Amino acid sequence: MISADESFQQLLAHLLHILPVAAALVLPVVLAGGLLLRVLRGGSLTTTMTVLVLVPVAGLVAGILGVAGFMFTDTLTTTLLVCLLVTLVTVPVAVVYGRHVGRRSVWEREARERERAAEAARRELVAWISHDLRTPLAGIRAMAEALADGVVADHRGVTGYATRIGSETRRLSGMVDDLFELSRITAGALRLDTGEVPLQEVVSDAVATQEHLAHRKRVRVLATTAAPAVVLGSDPELGRVVRNLLSNAIRHTPPEGTVHVRIGADGADATLTVSDACGGIPEHELPRVFEVAFRGTSARTPGTETRGGLGLAIAKGLVEAHRGRISARNHDDGCCFEVRLPLAHA
């Protein structure tokens, strides 16, 4: 009868005999797997997870075959079948898990990028708005102090100061309105009271409200209709979109230039284009024209029409709230902003 010590010694001797053989077969598989992972380190997470599952299984099979001396007995066949079953179960799990984690990583990365972009936009917005607020406030304060100190005493001078204070106050009020509208859009608090809205009427009203600005800039505004277009939307918000696009076009069109507003239809969409004669926007800046407070590389000299660079961002938010699209492109002597909205009876 074999004692326990002798059994242990036999087991230890057997292990010492088979370990070098198993190691000689398993080690190359593991090294090959490590090399493959290094090659695939820039690849998808799904591929990496699949390799991580297959390498141990392949190493196990290699070790078993080496120890068994490639003599296929019933036990060896059963063991290999179990390894195959484990592979058939773990590889799909690894693929599914890799795809899930990969998508989650992409979402998290995109979310971080959006958060960084939003934070940069907020900082830029604060910088722009603080500059634009200081300019009219400083003017109002200086004129108010001049009136209080009696520096301007004649009726004509007092009237002129009062007019300028009123103009700067309206500008500040417009900036506050723009900030409030933008906050509603970005917070998802915008609620539209929708109905059938003829675009011709919206454009006509917007042209009338911007007539004084066009007259002061000596810019001609033309409105043409290629096809009647009725959309499902909110009249005040659509009017604001057109006014923002018109005021932007008028501000950047030189004197004696022309701003052209066109209404048409294209399939199931109503189209509204506003073309100016600004001379064009650099191609690398076109994708950014609808960003909050973006004004391009031109010199920044705010005038009475400047409103913090929020007009196009607000227009984009309102158009998208109507399930529409807005885009900008260059044409011969200026820029063209196109709005596409679903027709009410498409």
Rank of each mutant, 00 (worst) to 15 (best):
V21S: 00
P302W: 09
L192G: 02
D266K: 06
V93T: 13
E291P: 02
V95D: 10
P28M: 03
V176Y: 00
V219K: 00
A111L: 06
I314N: 07
I250T: 01
A58F: 13
V339F: 02
T48K: 13
R123C: 01
A32E: 01
G317H: 10
F70D: 01
E108F: 08
S327E: 10
T47A: 12
L343R: 15
E196H: 13
S275F: 03
G264P: 07
V89S: 13
E110N: 15
V319E: 00
M49E: 08
N330D: 09
L192S: 04
A146H: 03
G264K: 07
A229M: 06
G264I: 07
A22V: 09
T306D: 14
A32M: 05
I165Q: 08
L125H: 13
M175I: 06
F70K: 05
R295N: 11
I314G: 10
Y97A: 14
G324I: 04
G66A: 05
F180R: 15
D333F: 02
A268D: 14
A94Q: 06
T186E: 13
R240P: 05
A68Y: 10
L54G: 07
E320N: 04
K217G: 04
A189K: 07
S234D: 13
A187G: 11
L318G: 08
T159L: 12
S234M: 09
R112T: 11
L35S: 07
A162G: 00
F337N: 05
V86Q: 02
F70M: 07
A32Q: 02
V57T: 10
G42K: 14
E338M: 01
L37Y: 04
I165N: 07
S173T: 12
D193A: 12
L133C: 02
D74K: 06
L65Q: 03
R288N: 15
Y97S: 15
G296S: 02
F8E: 11
V158L: 12
L85P: 04
E338S: 12
A24P: 00
G166C: 08
R216T: 11
S105Q: 15
S3W: 08
L37E: 05
L343F: 01
D178P: 01
R325M: 11
A138C: 06
A148I: 03
G303T: 07
V86R: 05
L310F: 13
L37Q: 11
R156P: 01
P342Y: 02
T79W: 04
D333G: 08
L54E: 06
T78D: 11
I64W: 01
R262H: 11
T273G: 06
P302H: 10
T209W: 01
K316I: 00
E119G: 03
A268R: 15
L286Y: 01
T258E: 15
L52A: 12
A249N: 05
E320W: 01
D333Y: 04
T135K: 09
L213E: 11
V176G: 02
V57L: 15
A148F: 10
A68H: 14
H155D: 14
G139T: 10
D74I: 00
P56W: 07
L65G: 03
P92L: 00
G102E: 14
R122P: 03
A22I: 03
H260C: 09
G98A: 07
E320A: 00
V151C: 08
L15N: 08
G317P: 03
L12M: 10
E181W: 00
H215R: 14
A293F: 08
V339D: 04
S275M: 12
V106H: 12
S7M: 14
